[in-house]
Design a protein around this nucleic acid. Sequence first.
DNA 1: GATACCGGTATCCTTTGGGATAGTAGTATC
DNA 2: GATACTACTATCCCAAAGGATACCGGTATC
Lengths: 127, 127
Amino acid sequence: MNTQPELIPHQGEACLASVKAVKDALYVLSGKWKLPLILTLSNGPLRFKEIQRALGEITPKILSKELKELELNEFVERKVFSTVPVTVLYELTPYSKSLDKVLDELRNWGLQHRQRIMHQPPIVSED
Amino acid sequence: MNTQPELIPHQGEACLASVKAVKDALYVLSGKWKLPLILTLSNGPLRFKEIQRALGEITPKILSKELKELELNEFVERKVFSTVPVTVLYELTPYSKSLDKVLDELRNWGLQHRQRIMHQPPIVSED
DNA sequence: GATACCGGTATCCTTTGGGATAGTAGTATC
DNA sequence: GATACTACTATCCCAAAGGATACCGGTATC
């Protein structure tokens, strides 16, 4: 019992690749504003200021950063129109729909998990 | 064109609830170590020090914190045995399997997304 | 009695995410 | 010429996440 040299190597490449892939996926959804932003744009394209007003609390610096990340991931397209004052529209790409299944799974799991944790408080140690 | 008072209220409760649910789900997977930890334990229960050695870089403080969070979410069970030096085993619960579908979706999406972003570099503005 | 192993905790420090505030260029209006 | 609008950028700041290092109480071994 005192011999525990079983160093479980186990760090298979497949495992590491899986972790990396999941992290990639989590990354594009991470942060405080990605989800609300995608949701807001799902009702149609909006201008910068309009998004700001719709989200209510976000500062231009953060909004700019988030939009750029969404652009890099090809979820959002930025369209500039040479109008009176320039108009910049942000709109979801068709590719952004590829997230739907993932988001659905996450939403369902999140819902049932909250139910579970709420209704079934963990075993309290009785001391 | 200059009248843009369309203040898109749109903050429906269903939307907000979805965001909350997805955030709940993301939360339990967030952080640097949750995924590697779950993966490491999926090969069978391990002791504290064994996990530390298997992960390689994690400090005891962080490992302790992560394990407590996994316990709170009922993904991991902590079992204490009154052996020579005390033995503490951490093992995945059956409930942790409920994450499998979610993780699978995330993994698949992450894989295809990396392919897409890599093979199809974004349109570079030609100036 | 010194050292080592186990399962952690305590204290401090650095990095990162996010935000507040101000300012920019261009045009139009008063 | 002052103000206002759009779409941002720049600078500074704060809090949270993560980590380095040291330590604790218990037992066994040298």
